[in-house]
Design a protein around this nucleic acid. Structure first.
Lengths: 208, 208, 208, 208
DNA sequence: TATGAATGAGGTTTCATTCAT
DNA sequence: CATGAATGAAACCTCATTCAT
């Protein structure tokens, strides 16, 4: 999946813009390895020695790049959300049709969850509590931006009579439902990502 | 919320049937305290000293009731699912109307998540990875029973043309959406549990 | 020297009064060993493993008695000064002659420095900087009590025309001179403690 | 205080004679910064990164000037004592009056302690134990020269009946008393250096 | 059953030192 | 000479678990 990330055409642009750390730099490789391990074993069970071993350095060297273990989690999380934000904006750019925007958002979030934009997005919820309060606030700013963008599109859909549920509820339901796909849906399984998007829209009774 | 649990009329029955540990026994109080702490701080960050302090004993004494820390988590989880199963069966008992059964299942799961049946249900997903493989298999049996019951009701609804999405997908979506309510919905907030159930059904475009 | 401490007749009284920790208890042995090592190698160079090895336990066990390494230093220091205070009061109790009081104070401080009352007194100056600010304030209260007692006796001597120098200066000079004996004077060497006291008084031109 | 050091007229001479390192050279600035930090925080708590930051270089660069951290301490110490020796010889040069020589020595030592000759002299006692045995021996040669010079002047005073205490004891007492001034006396406080010298002589009952 | 001192493995972090650039 | 990433040993500290009382 890391490989996939590097091959995405927009990555160099995002690196240049400072959205994310260069995945080929030492720090970038550290982040990718950490994200992957945090996802596999959880933050608490992942030791800095594990991370170092994954990258091929010694544990002490990690602290050249990050002041402590928690700051790695913080970096993984804020890069994940920054990347998701950037890709989300690009995905709906210029689109007027609300249904298409809705589908784009769903697809974008699923891509974020399933690693098209690098691991890390799922950690936002599963490892949230391991972030210090200060760090939580920092990430919360980005999350709020992301969430309100979603809610606004849902509100448009509601205004056009395309859905009946309140945007506030719908966003919470969808976030949960999509995050959960991280636990059961596999890209290389029986269903494609597009079929998954389709089932989500079907559930919400959204017209094509 | 613990108090609420104890006041539920069916608790003595469930205790007598061996479904759950007597919440007034030493072991029961240990489980309740553990569940609450695991939910608050996560399994990994909760120390056996924390648990002992919450119950008012010393850390060493815990090991007279449980062989190790993980077995506490296992007990919390299997009691949570057993309780949820028992209450679920009771809730749909004798009911023929599929829509009513669907609503009952949703309500039941929300009650489990929000503590009507004691804390612990949320932990099933959030702390799942801290269970050893052996323990996971043990709990999985109960979860499978629970999950397939849900899927069967959804399949009925599909057969009657009430919903369009595949039961398999719907169950996964719903599980995620409902579990997520644990992070944003509060019983003492602006909305009642019934309103929440209503919004869930609205989202799935389910007729009344 | 530890042995000497235990044989002092007043020790049981002081332990009973809560002035010092029982030197035969686990905590007391830990303190004695720590004080001795801190004196030998300095606080920074003494590892908790060193201390544990000296006492015959494992390093982790130390933290059953003290929350961290610094708190051991704090305890060593406050016990040292508390003990010195107690013995000082006893030494001048009922004495009216200023010259005799002066000699008693000098002797008392030398005894504290050279271990008659347990190691630790010298550390008060040499390892002072390793104490956190909070801990410094705590110990400072005791030190102030000790220092002002000395200054008061010197002021009496000045008032009686026995010395010419200001008490403020004299106390600072004496503290330095006596502390320094810790680096060159040895009880088992060529001179006795009484001869040392005599030389101090000679230097200050104090009549017999 | 560093500024003051550089302005002293004899510094260029001493640099030219190889007594001390040029305080404007890279090595000299490194020594000054180290001495200052060692005094503030102690040798053990001062990191090479601290020193490097103070000088404005990176930690790795330090090792182009010194083979290891301890050698910095050694250099600071031997320069301190060399400088003190040079200034001491100059101060008593041609002086016949023992009382005046005594005063000159006291003043000289106080100047060394309070920074007229650059920080570092106090470290000789406080950080002594952090020197390896080999280094201790090296500095000891210089210290012995310094100490015996003092003792000889005291012996002269004793021979002339000006003091009563043994030179051996007096030197130890004075060293301690003067070193201690580093902890409480401040040049910019209520008393001048000359008043301090006066109080020292008063204490030792030395005639004017 | 409860206690609490002790264990001991393992965690995060620090830091002097090295070395290719 | 300077850099700064990397090293690797060792530091402090945590904590589930044991066991004699």
């Amino acid at each position: 999946m890391h490989g996939a990330l590097n091959q995405l055409p927009e990555v160099p642009v995002l690196v240049a813009d400072g959205v994310i750390t260069d995945p080929e730099s030492a720090k970038g490789r550290l982040l990718a390895a950490s994200a992957s391990l945090f996802k596999q074993k959880g933050f608490a069970r992942t030791t800095v020695r594990d991370i170092a071993a994954e990258v091929g350095i010694l544990s002490g060297s990690i602290f050249h790049h990050f002041p402590n273990k928690e700051s790695i989690l913080l970096a993984v999380m804020s890069e994940a959300i920054s990347l998701a934000l950037a890709r989300m904006h690009k995905a709906v750019e210029g689109e007027q049709d609300v249904v298409k925007k809705f589908r784009a958002l769903v697809r974008c979030e699923l891509e974020a969850i399933h690693g098209f934009t690098g691991v890390g997005f799922t950690l936002l919820s599963s490892e949230w509590r391991y972030l210090s309060e200060t760090s939580q606030k920092e990430v919360l700013k980005l999350r709020d931006e992301y969430e309100s963008f979603h809610r606004n599109v849902y509100a448009e859909a509601k205004a056009q009579g395309l859905i009946k549920v309140e945007p506030f509820f719908l966003r919470h339901f969808l976030r949960g439902a999509l995050a959960e796909t991280g636990h059961w849906f596999h890209l290389d399984g029986n269903y494609s990502l597009d079929e998954l998007v389709e089932q989500v829209c079907l559930t919400a009774a959204l017209p094509k």
